[in-house]
Design a protein around this nucleic acid. Structure first.
Lengths: 118, 118
DNA sequence: CGGCATCCCAAGCGATACTG
DNA sequence: CAGTATCGCTTGGGATGCCG
């Protein structure tokens, strides 16, 4: 089997997912229901959102609560592990802001050649 | 297009790769050549190692230096961005160690049912 | 409202063989 | 010693449509 590459990788796995950081940030201070998250992340299809949520729940990062009400309602909130991960996420967020210059090659961000020196 | 989910995701992308954290840790204090890294990571095929290294280099996390010697020699070291990422990696590593209990479901770690209370 | 099923495409990871 | 090319499998992400 895949053995384990590095302890840090285990933590990385928890966060690895295109929308997981965003989801976790939205859940940072408040419990949200599925519909709320969809509103927060309009770019994400519900299939993908559900998948990310399921992974997060499966990994013990968030907690899913199903209410037997009608119409059905589901709420998501951070688990202890999830809250513990927030500082880490926050640092990545901060890092991105502080090193935005160095990250200027990760995506289709620049439509202009970024004037090399004037 | 894929828009961008979250600033933290940009940073996550840099580290996302099964062997990247391990590679970065090995490069933490010393420059290593390809062969050295292979020795450090015997579980990784050279094709995959090369790929991870190329991504890391492409993302500006590490620097690849080719020496025109014979036999050919290539050395890898952290870039400024790479060294800046080390603390983050270190925290993930530390996190993994401190929350190892909560991570007990992420992989084929336990061969035993984790004695429930005895 | 929330979720599942299906279909599709792209990326990641892995093993092997070959090259300079 | 270091890297490339090929092939195949598994995962992840995305769009649509149907169900409770």
């Amino acid at each position: 089997m895949p053995s384990l590459p590095c302890p840090a990788y285990q933590v990385l796995r928890l966060l690895t997912g295109k929308w997981k950081p965003a989801i976790l940030f939205h859940l940072r201070e408040q419990t949200l229901r599925f519909g709320d998250l969809r509103r927060c992340l309009p770019e994400v299809s519900q299939k993908v959102l559900t998948a990310q949520l399921k992974e997060l729940e499966s990994d013990g990062v968030i907690i899913r609560t199903l209410y037997p009400d009608v119409p059905p309602r589901v709420e998501y909130c951070l688990s202890p592990l999830g809250v513990a991960l927030i500082p880490l996420l926050q640092q990545m967020h901060d890092f991105a802001l502080n090193h935005v210059d160095l990250l200027a090659g990760q995506g289709p961000v620049s439509s202009e050649p970024a004037a090399t020196s004037g």
